[in-house]
Amino acid sequence: MPDADPRLYLLAGLALFAIGFYSLVVQTHLLRRIMALNVMGSGVFLAFLALALKAAAPMPDPVPHAMVLTGIVVAVCATGLALALADRVQALEANEETPAPEEPPSAETGSEPEDAG
């Protein structure tokens, strides 16, 4: 199978970036916004790899490949951190609206059994 046209994937990457940015600003649900950041990131990665394919003699440029691998790992770290933070914020807002909190705030920061180790 012949190589893909890099420009097609380049444009798709830019489209993902724009869609992600729009949704990040417009959407209000925290999960949607976190997914939007991921889509923006995927757009950048598509652009990187499409550019790598342009230098495809005899093989695609490995340097952007390594960069994107780094980027994917950074993105999943960002997602994990953002989800933990979003979860705390949402728990806070849920508790503010109900008189009986689901878990007392002190439980969040209680001592841990692993402390002994």
């Binding site: 190589d3 994937y9 976190i34 790899l49 790598a52 490949h65 999943v76 979003a86």
Partner: peptide, 29 residues
């Protein structure tokens, strides 16, 4: 798409991390 761009290393990483793990994280959240 990564496979079509001749990046099998990334296809592996994306399927496992980008889609699989990120998806599981978001789903459980």
């Amino acid at each position: 798409a990564w496979l079509r761009l001749r990046a099998p290393d990334l296809a592996l990483a994306e399927a496992a991390v980008g889609s699989g793990l990120t998806g599981a994280l978001i789903l459980s959240a």
